[in-house]
Simulated scan of single mutants.
Amino acid sequence: MTCFSCLFGRNLDSATQRTAELDDELSGILNITLYTHRELRIATKDFSPTNKIGEGGFGSVYKGKLKNGHMAAIKVLSTESRQGVREFLTEIQVISEIEHENLVKLYGCCVEGNHRILVYNYLENNSLAKTLLGGGHCNIHFSWRTRTKICIGVARGLAYLHEEVRPHIIHRDIKASNILLDKDLTPKISDFGLAKLIPPNMTQVSTRVAGTIGYLAPEYAVRGQVTRRADIYSFGVLLIEIVSGRCNTNSRLPVEEQYLLERTWQLYERRELLGLVDTALNGNFDAQQACRFFKIGLLCTQEDQKLRPSMSTVVKMLTGEIDIDDKIITKPGLISDFLDLKVRSTAPKAKAESISTSYNSGSDNLDNTSLTSAGSSQATMTFTSPFTRSM
């Protein structure tokens, strides 16, 4: 894969120079199609509002039909976004040479003039945030069998990134809005704009903190040192969300129930985990398997990151290849502790970010470290970290 670090550190004089540098970087990537802006205008019917399927901090996403007949999700980066080029290059760098059943497929990109556009395969059933957790009208029935398929699929995709790809990849933004569903409800991990590559001789990377409150591993937020264990924490939260059918944070609930991970730990200690299973299932689920999934979620979110299992181990736990009954589960890194001690809310000033978009990024500004709550309150939190050094 091409390294873009040299581009990020330069202070270029003009748009022409920036375009030339970008073209040079992209020329080293062999497995990607370069589209013209005209092609994508035709595909989206001139970026018609009727074809708009999502909007996030880095721009808008449109559904379009390419000239080869394939439907595509066309992600147009906003020209106002200061982080747009960084995000654009990172996504291309990370996923141009990898392919897996549970990862989105990048078809290509457009780099004409000031245009920065990514072209992905189109996924018919949007994201988990929009469908399962969105709280709106959704005609998809998430049966227990479907939920287990989604949990295991996401785990396999993440295990592939962590352990099979060279160099290894840390996603850094595993959350419900970044899990997309195809026509068969097969999950696909999307949005690699915050991803980091792990060189062979390293286990962690130091970086500015970025991600989404509720999924963010506390140790990463405090020290700015991201490891694969941070992704595993995020997956643990997501796993519990899928089984319970609710967002990780919801300020509309009674105080003792607002933070899903804290609630899960309380019910685990009282041996009442089944009370957390989504009532939309109407009791049609495997009780033993549901309890196992909750426990796996707790194992993944343990406060001591060294105790969290690897993703390949998580896959085996989910499929029943590894018994977890003999596993000791320690207290998770709780979101309530994280918010009380380390986060200053700026909700009165914040503009709510919709979770309805299926191709949005989890952080609008890496420098300001703006973190977004996935709960119903949709408040933006500003994290004050003692770690401020960039890579």
Rank of each mutant, 00 (worst) to 15 (best):
N248K: 04
V209A: 11
G283K: 03
S310V: 05
G275Y: 02
T207P: 11
R308N: 08
S190E: 05
G236Y: 09
A217I: 07
I296P: 01
L276G: 02
G211F: 13
G297F: 01
F285L: 05
Y233D: 03
G275S: 03
L307E: 15
A210S: 14
S234E: 10
A280M: 01
R263N: 08
A195V: 14
L261W: 07
N248Q: 03
D304P: 05
S206F: 08
L281H: 03
I242D: 03
M311E: 09
I240V: 12
E272C: 05
L261E: 12
F235N: 02
G224V: 12
I296S: 04
L239Y: 04
G214L: 06
V255P: 10
E269N: 01
G236H: 07
T203M: 06
L281E: 02
R263T: 11
V222W: 10
I242M: 03
Q258I: 13
L273A: 00
N250D: 15
L260Q: 04
F235D: 03
S310I: 02
T249E: 04
P199C: 04
F192Y: 15
C247Q: 10
I232P: 01
A210V: 15
P254C: 12
Q289R: 05
L276T: 06
L281D: 03
A195I: 15
C300T: 04
Q288K: 12
Q204I: 07
P309M: 07
D231W: 10
E219Y: 11
P309C: 09
I232T: 15
E303A: 13
T212Y: 06
A221R: 04
I198M: 14
Q225G: 05
D278F: 09
R208G: 15
S234D: 11
G236M: 03
D191A: 12
L238E: 02
R252M: 13
W265D: 05
E269H: 02
E241A: 03
D191N: 15
I213A: 11
R252V: 13
Q225H: 12
F192L: 14
P218F: 06
L298H: 05
G245D: 04
C247Y: 02
I198V: 15
P218R: 11
I198R: 11
Y268M: 01
T264Q: 01
V237K: 01
Y259A: 06
F285E: 02
G214T: 07
L260K: 07
C247L: 09
I213T: 13
D304R: 13
V222L: 13
G211W: 14
L307K: 15
L197F: 15
N250L: 12
Q204R: 14
L273Q: 00
P254H: 07
R271P: 00
G236R: 06
I232R: 00
S244C: 10
T212G: 08
L197Y: 10
T203E: 13
Q258S: 07
R292F: 01
I213Y: 11
V226A: 12
V226F: 04
E256V: 08
R308D: 08
F294Q: 03
Q289A: 01
G283R: 05
T203A: 11
Y220C: 10
C247I: 08
V237N: 00
P200N: 09
L276H: 06
Q258W: 09
F235R: 00
D191W: 05
L273F: 01
R270N: 05
E262V: 01
F293G: 00
D278S: 02
D286P: 00
A195S: 15
L307F: 15
G211P: 14
T203I: 11
V243S: 04
G214C: 07
E262I: 02
Y233W: 09
